[in-house]
Simulated scan of single mutants.
Amino acid sequence: MSRPEAAHPAEGPAPTPELAARPSSPVTAVLALGANLGDPSETLDASVAVLTVTPGIEAVAASPRALTAPVGGPPGQPDYLNQVVRIRTALSPWELLGVAHRLEQDHHRRRTVRWGARTLDVDLIVYGDLTSDHPDLVLPHPRAAERGFVLLPWAWLDPEAELAGESVAELGARAADAPHVRREPARTAHLDGPRPDVLRPDSTPGLPSAPLPDGAAIARPWSDPT
């Protein structure tokens, strides 16, 4: 994603043609969400729900969640709740980064302390096969291959996933923080109906009926009317 804890740049124009270009057909992208202030569970619920109704984003699949010890940053922080979300998108990488930053802003993210506690952190991990070394958006995410709190939920969602040609599950098993990543127990649906991110495939027209990995969730697809 962008420079850690810096003022984000994605409200302005994309810095390179590659980051500005929309794909000719939707591509798969992966976002990593984390929170350890406020009500992290409600924050992740709301963030996934917003992604499901964002024009240009479809087929949102959310991983099981992980409780993780903070990595780096000031001591004494609460544990994080982390989740990986896989999407299909017709947005450009820069537009998708803007979506991520607006989610953070909507949850009052403040970029004051490097790796400090936060209400919401949203990182763009991969965007199709695109590589970028621009400092405002490095793709794949430069530290994702070392972060068990990203890799393990991603592998729970998609055991066959790869990152830069390597197995995400194997990278996760080797990550230094892997022993501190604990899978959150499955939660029941809200009393007023299922959350947008826990609709099963057989309840959503047009989605495959194959079972999801244990604990995974998939959201209703969104079709951009334009």
Rank of each mutant, 00 (worst) to 15 (best):
R118A: 00
A59C: 01
E95T: 12
G98T: 01
S47K: 09
S24K: 11
F149I: 11
L97T: 08
W154Q: 12
R143P: 09
I87C: 11
G193E: 07
E160A: 13
R200F: 00
G172D: 10
S132L: 01
D177P: 04
T188C: 11
W115F: 01
A217H: 01
P9N: 01
R114C: 13
P23W: 01
L139C: 08
A100S: 14
A217G: 05
T16N: 10
P78Y: 11
G206P: 12
H180T: 13
A29Y: 11
T112R: 02
P196K: 00
A176S: 05
G206T: 01
G172T: 06
E42Q: 02
A61M: 03
W156K: 11
R3T: 03
R147G: 05
L37P: 04
R88S: 14
D214H: 11
G73I: 12
W222G: 05
D214S: 14
D106C: 08
A62G: 03
V27S: 14
L67M: 04
P159Q: 09
A161S: 14
R86T: 05
S132C: 02
L31G: 02
H101M: 07
P221M: 06
V30F: 02
T16M: 05
P55S: 12
A169R: 03
S2V: 15
S92D: 03
D129L: 14
G34Y: 07
L137K: 11
E11W: 02
R3Q: 06
G215R: 12
P26A: 07
A161W: 06
H134S: 06
A6L: 09
P179K: 07
G12D: 15
P13V: 09
D192T: 06
E166F: 11
R147A: 11
E104W: 09
R65G: 00
L139I: 11
A20F: 06
T89K: 13
D133R: 08
V71E: 12
Y80E: 04
P70Q: 07
R86S: 05
M1C: 00
R118M: 02
